[in-house]
């Protein structure tokens, strides 16, 4: 395929050269004798020039013949599927369609090419600040799509998380089947409403146990508003399109460390309170509690 295109290119090129040199011959013929041929034996000079030009054309013609001879003829008519009928369309307004179709085909082709490039670049330069390293063997096992997965897979993930921690109770609701909404009660400390998009976490809101479980209103307590903020940061941190299940699991592991939200003092200053808030940050790796200002 690649070779064919190369040959076609060189054939087109030699045709171009031939055309340009033929043009030179005609130019010279139309101009006739010029002043620069001098006075003496100007006819013979002119004939010589013409002969040279014709030799070049002759050579070029041979090149063209050679390169055309190298081309392999296509095996048969191109199969264009139903689009062939578009070109036979008689209605005036629909005659445009074929051109548009070709254009959009070119576009999608380009998009494929660019996205493949972008995919390679992003895989090489990871944009999130995670400490994770991807092993190539694991990467092959991933699904092609993370936001369009069968509900059973998500269901399994949620039940496995539910089993993982004894002090976490999960109630799931599914207003839209592939995108479940789960409520995670963390002991008697807090409750989070987590919205999934396929296997990825889309939104998290943390509230007190006594508050309603609306996804769109913030908690009325400062401490839970802060924890919500930190959960969003962690959600982005753990986000990994390549391994969505692992991302959810690591997020839940991290989230589980809030079980000591009120009881654990800050690791750095050993105090409970800093600007009237308990340590609302949990280190992403060690899960140790820190104040916002101490981390």
């Amino acid at each position: 395929m690649e070779r064919d295109i190369e040959q076609l290119n060189s054939a087109l090129n030699s045709v171009k050269i031939l055309r340009s040199n033929v043009r030179c011959v005609f130019e010279s013929v139309s101009n006739g004798l010029r002043a620069d041929h001098g006075e003496e034996s100007k006819e013979s000079k002119y004939i010589l020039e013409l002969q040279e030009l014709l030799t070049i054309v002759n050579n070029n013609l041979r090149d063209v013949e050679n390169s055309v001879g190298n081309l392999t003829p296509p095996p048969g008519a191109f199969s264009l599927g139903n689009t062939t009928y578009l070109s036979q369309e008689t209605t005036q307004e629909r005659q445009q369609l074929y051109g548009q179709l070709v254009n959009s085909y070119k576009w999608t082709d380009k998009i494929r090419e660019y996205s493949a490039l972008a995919g390679n670049m992003l895989a090489a330069n990871s944009f999130n600040k995670t400490y994770k390293t991807y092993s190539t063997t694991k990467r092959r096992k991933t699904q092609t799509s993370n936001h369009n997965v069968p509900p059973e897979i998500i269901e399994n993930l949620i039940t496995s998380i539910d089993r993982l921690f004894t002090d976490v109770t999960i109630t799931a609701k599914r207003p839209f089947v592939p995108n479940p909404l789960i409520q995670v009660a963390l002991g008697r400390v807090l409750r989070a409403v987590i919205a999934f998009k396929g296997l990825m976490i889309e939104w998290v809101v943390v509230k007190a146990l006594s508050e309603d479980n609306d996804l769109w209103t913030e908690s009325r307590y400062k401490v839970f508003r802060k924890v919500t903020e930190n959960c969003h940061a962690a959600m982005c941190h753990f986000h990994s399109p390549m391994m969505p299940e692992l991302a959810v699991r690591s997020f839940m592991h991290w989230f589980h460390s809030y079980i000591t939200l009120f009881s654990a003092p800050c690791k750095r200053c050993s105090k409970h309170l800093q600007s009237n808030l308990p340590p609302t940050w949990r280190d992403l790796r060690s899960l140790e509690p820190y104040h916002e200002e101490c981390k």
């Binding site: 008697r188 400390v189 007190a208 146990l209 006594s210 307590y221 401490v223 009120f262 003092p265 409970h272």
Partner: peptide, 18 residues
């Protein structure tokens, strides 16, 4: 009163500090 917490054992140290 520490409003977000409902179990005294969890937040006693915190309230004492306050």
């Amino acid at each position: 009163e520490y409003k977000p917490c409902v179990v005294p054992a969890m937040c006693w140290d915190l309230i004492m500090e306050f």
